[in-house]
Amino acid sequence: MQPERRGDLLILAATLLASIGWLFSKEAIQGLPPAGFVGWRFLLAALLLLPFCYRQLIATPTELLVKAAAIGLVMTLNLIFWIQAIAHSKGIGEGAFIMSLAMLMVPPLAWLIFKEKPVRQFWLALPIALLGLLLLTMNNGLSLTLSQLLFLLASLSLALYFNLNSRFARRVDPMALTCIQLAVTGVMHLIYSASIEQWPDTIAPSTWGWFAASVLLATSFRFVLQSMGQKYSPVGNAALIMMLEPVWTVLISVFWYHEPMPLAKVLGCLLILTALVSYRSGNIMLWLRTRKAPALNKPH
């Protein structure tokens, strides 16, 4: 098999695991406190990655480690919104498409924080995405449900994370950076959980099974597959394949949770996907001219 094809398949497998991870998470928090679940999930995932990157961590200057940990605090905020949104939602498909809007929130935040004006493709994609979001959430009129609002806040904080991390990631080994940020996110969630959550007296074995799947498959193994795939898959292929995550998540939600998909919601999802493909395609063409790859890693 050609390396490029192998890379595409690895990215596709990582995207499928990311989608299934939404299901693992929602099922796990039926029996575990949400923040506690995220805390242990990410801390254990960091410990699993540690043997593969401890030498890189030792070689990294302390100043860079501190900055990496600080960006991990932004990831922590993102995961707090995300897991609470999942806890308050009936399905997961709608939330996955709202979260995918983070890619279109990156340019305006970069403009606001770093004075980098968005490219022309952003302004073309933005109205399409906004119309899609309106159709996706209009089942409640012009009001947002709590889960939709939390997903929007999670998407905004994820865009902030992308902005900060993409400007810092080239200075630290990718696996070491991920290990640090997973550990910080895990520890902060456990502190948060100890402050406000109460653990149940008994936890069903099935809940531990969902938890183990989240740690091993949806976090650690997914990261390994994604990292391996990005070595061989062209950045354009990887970016487009990874945009399939909300599509798989919707299909999983319809099958598992019988999430209703009226015509307006379907059209909303299609418009958001169209906006993302349009924007990503423009970014890919820009990358081909500048030879500067966009950041693709996601914490979820």
Score class of each variant (00 low, 15 high):
residue 3 P to H: 05
residue 4 E to P: 01
residue 5 R to M: 06
residue 7 G to S: 04
residue 12 L to W: 06
residue 24 F to S: 05
residue 25 S to A: 14
residue 28 A to W: 01
residue 30 Q to F: 05
residue 31 G to M: 03
residue 32 L to E: 05
residue 34 P to Q: 07
residue 36 G to E: 05
residue 36 G to Q: 02
residue 36 G to A: 08
residue 39 G to H: 04
residue 42 F to T: 05
residue 43 L to I: 06
residue 44 L to K: 02
residue 45 A to H: 04
residue 48 L to Y: 04
residue 49 L to N: 00
residue 54 Y to L: 15
residue 55 R to C: 06
residue 58 I to H: 12
residue 62 T to A: 08
residue 63 E to S: 09
residue 63 E to L: 07
residue 63 E to D: 02
residue 66 V to F: 07
residue 67 K to L: 04
residue 71 I to G: 11
residue 71 I to H: 01
residue 75 M to G: 13
residue 77 L to H: 02
residue 83 I to D: 04
residue 86 I to G: 08
residue 90 K to S: 15
residue 97 F to D: 00
residue 100 S to P: 01
residue 104 L to W: 00
residue 105 M to Y: 00
residue 106 V to N: 01
residue 106 V to T: 10
residue 109 L to R: 01
residue 110 A to G: 09
residue 111 W to D: 11
residue 112 L to V: 00
residue 116 E to F: 10
residue 117 K to M: 10
residue 123 W to H: 15
residue 124 L to H: 11
residue 125 A to L: 10
residue 125 A to P: 11
residue 126 L to W: 13
residue 132 G to Y: 06
residue 133 L to Y: 12
residue 134 L to K: 14
residue 138 M to P: 08
residue 140 N to R: 14
residue 141 G to W: 14
residue 143 S to P: 13
residue 146 L to Q: 14
residue 156 L to C: 05
residue 156 L to K: 01
residue 161 Y to H: 15
residue 166 S to V: 03
residue 166 S to T: 01
residue 169 A to C: 10
residue 172 V to M: 01
residue 173 D to Y: 01
residue 175 M to R: 13
residue 177 L to D: 11
residue 180 I to P: 03
residue 183 A to F: 03
residue 184 V to T: 04
residue 187 V to E: 03
residue 201 D to K: 13
residue 205 P to E: 04
residue 208 W to N: 07
residue 212 A to K: 06
residue 213 A to I: 04
residue 218 A to W: 13
residue 219 T to C: 07
residue 221 F to M: 10
residue 223 F to Y: 15
residue 223 F to R: 00
residue 225 L to T: 07
residue 226 Q to Y: 12
residue 226 Q to R: 11
residue 229 G to K: 12
residue 233 S to A: 15
residue 240 L to K: 08
residue 240 L to R: 11
residue 242 M to R: 10
residue 242 M to T: 14
residue 242 M to G: 11
residue 247 V to Q: 02
residue 248 W to E: 01
residue 252 I to R: 06
residue 252 I to A: 06
residue 255 F to Y: 08
residue 256 W to T: 08
residue 259 E to C: 03
residue 259 E to H: 10
residue 263 L to S: 12
residue 267 L to D: 06
residue 268 G to R: 04
residue 274 T to E: 13
residue 274 T to A: 15
residue 277 V to P: 04
residue 278 S to W: 15
residue 279 Y to G: 07
residue 279 Y to H: 08
residue 281 S to V: 13
residue 282 G to S: 07
residue 283 N to A: 06
residue 283 N to L: 10
residue 284 I to T: 13
residue 290 T to I: 12
residue 290 T to V: 10
residue 295 A to F: 14
residue 299 P to T: 15
residue 300 H to P: 03
residue 300 H to S: 15
